[in-house]
Design a protein around this nucleic acid. Structure first.
Length: 474
RNA sequence: CGGGGUGUAGCGCAGUUGGUCAGCGCGCCUGCUUUGGGAGCAGGAAGCCGCCGGUUCGAGUCCGGCCACCCCGACCA
């Protein structure tokens, strides 16, 4: 199949969808706003799942599964929550050929149905903390969708925890925020800002929402993960109490946190290039592809390539493209747009010289390496690729991060050169809304762990204790 | 929901003022020759021309209606 990929410069959003098509990550589904995640795309999700799931388990969480359908009455129990989600819910009104007595909402998130269970599970402080995660699909009826970034149905994980004190819940929310930060940095090779959302942008039903924010190659921000402090809102709504050590009855404190298949979109937009997908080795389903160049000695080359594949497979995720019907050039391009970090060519010359030709996807760098000890060298190279992708993304973010103090400058610059803008803000939701209205940019994050730097709000001139991060966002 | 665009073979497209307009490229299948950056030749399969209804002797082509999808905006992870 002939596949062409638009360049990022000529049409960024076209480039994005072209990369997905070329790498066969996903197709558009017959249902508007939905996608078919193809094996290549799903394999990336599986690697993400495995890494994240391990991190969740290490932090004491267990997996469970709650129903897809949520009674309408459940959703209505928490006022702010239902207000936030009702407009984007799919609702089942009929089942078994009959109209249902009570409509069933397809979960847009599972707080309500989970807290209904927690009421029964939690009696005493000895039952706390309760640390549960679930992997599932959810549905949000979005007006405008994009493959992976925003689809009507998507896959995610949602952690839901219950704690005896506000402080415990707060620490849990922060712990998971940092799990996400580490995952982004170490696995996705994606530098992120982390901190708190403004009141206007927090999750419906939360006290505070924390997030990680990444920069894409067009300078726009992408929220890549969220962690919420839910206070006692859901405990009150579902009457979930526990007896403390002194025999007193208290409402429990909650958190929830999630990341979704959107992360695959983040991966694509952070690292890929005009030739196609680029994957960080740690998340690449295949780390190394062996490509035999048959030339005049197909049997000799085939045997050597298979031996190499087998040997490398002992320590690396390897596959081989030994199609004799496809020319080497074709197979190189195929490897390129698939985003596999390393390519190893095996041809007659390599065999004679006891070497292999190794090519990096991230830099295109081509090196002839000794056949002896190749697996170890490839492992080192994979680490180098992983690091380079992170460094490159960080350098890009730094190059597109600015400070601005004058609102007129801001209005102009946010259009002229998209990126992260550090600016002072007076903390007012009204001002925040005005800025969004006039520039389409939003406050992405109030960063944690940064030093106070007093200044004046760029809009009102009122005092501000610190700069916040503005950007246009996906 | 507004603005823009597109529906013809698996993918990308062409198809003039209605009359061999059912076509091209890529892919796919068969055979032979090839193989260190998108191979060549020969043969072959494949299309309800988005849907419905008009006009007409005759409609991818003209008219009316509908539907779907993509892109750009308003909601959101």
């Amino acid at each position: 199949m002939e596949i062409t990929i638009a360049t990022r410069a000529e049409d960024y959003s076209r480039w994005y969808t072209d990369v997905i098509a070329a790498a066969q990550l996903a197709d558009y589904a017959p249902v508007k706003g939905c996608m078919v995640i193809r094996p290549n795309g799903y394999a990336i999700w599986e690697r993400m799942q495995r890494a994240l799931d391990d991190m969740f388990k290490e932090t004491g969480h267990r997996n469970a599964y709650f129903p897809l359908f949520i009674p309408e009455s459940f959703l209505k129990k928490e006022a702010e929550h239902v207000e936030g989600f009702a407009p984007e819910c799919a609702v089942v009104t009929h089942g078994g050929g009959k109209k249902l007595d009570e409509p069933l909402f397809v979960r847009p998130t599972s707080e309500t149905i989970i807290w209904d269970s927690y009421r029964n599970w939690i009696q005493s402080y000895r039952d706390l903390p309760l640390l549960i995660n679930q992997w599932c699909n959810i549905v949000r009826w979005e007006m405008r969708t994009r493959l992976f970034l925003r689809t009507t149905e998507f896959l995610w994980q949602e952690g839901h925890t219950a704690h005896a004190t506000e402080e415990d819940a707060r620490q849990e929310a922060m712990r998971m925020l940092h799990v996400y930060r580490r995952f982004a940095e170490e696995w996705m090779a994606l530098p992120v800002l982390y901190g708190e959302k403004t009141a206007a942008q927090k999750f419906a039903g939360a006290i505070r929402t924390h997030c990680i924010e990444a920069m894409m190659q067009d300078g726009k921000a992408l929220q890549a993960g969220t962690s919420h402090e839910l206070g006692q809102n859901f405990a009150r709504a579902f009457n979930v109490t526990f007896l403390n050590e002194k025999g007193g009855r208290e409402f429990v404190w909650a958190t929830s946190w999630g990341v979704s298949t959107r992360l695959i979109g983040a991966l694509i937009m952070a690292h890929s290039d005009d030739k196609g997908l680029v994957l960080p080795p740690k998340l690449a389903p295949i780390e190394v592809r062996v490509i035999p160049v048959f030339a005049k000695q197909p049997e000799k080359v085939g045997t050597a390539a298979e031996a190499l594949r087998k040997e490398l497979s002992q320590t690396l995720r390897v596959d081989m493209d030994a199609r004799e019907s496809a020319s080497p050039g074709w197979r190189f391009v195929d490897w390129e747009r698939s985003g596999i970090p390393l390519r190893v060519e095996v041809g007659p010359r390599d065999i004679d010289n006891h070497t292999a030709m190794v090519v990096r996807r991230d830099t295109g760098e081509k090196t002839s390496l000794p056949r002896e000890g190749l697996a170890d060298r490839l492992a080192e190279l994979l680490m180098a690729v992983q690091k380079n992708l992170y460094d490159r993304a960080l350098a890009f973010r730094n190059a597109h991060t600015y400070q601005v103090d004058d609102y007129e400058d801001f209005k102009r610059l946010i259009d002229e050169r998209p990126g992260f803008y550090y600016a002072h803000w007076n903390g007012s939701s009204v001002v925040e809304a005005k800025i969004q209205e006039e520039t389409k940019a939003t406050i992405r994050v109030l960063e944690h762990d940064v030093e106070a730097s007093p200044g004046k709000c760029m809009v009102t001139g009122e005092p501000s204790s610190r700069r916040v991060v503005f950007a246009k966002a996906y």
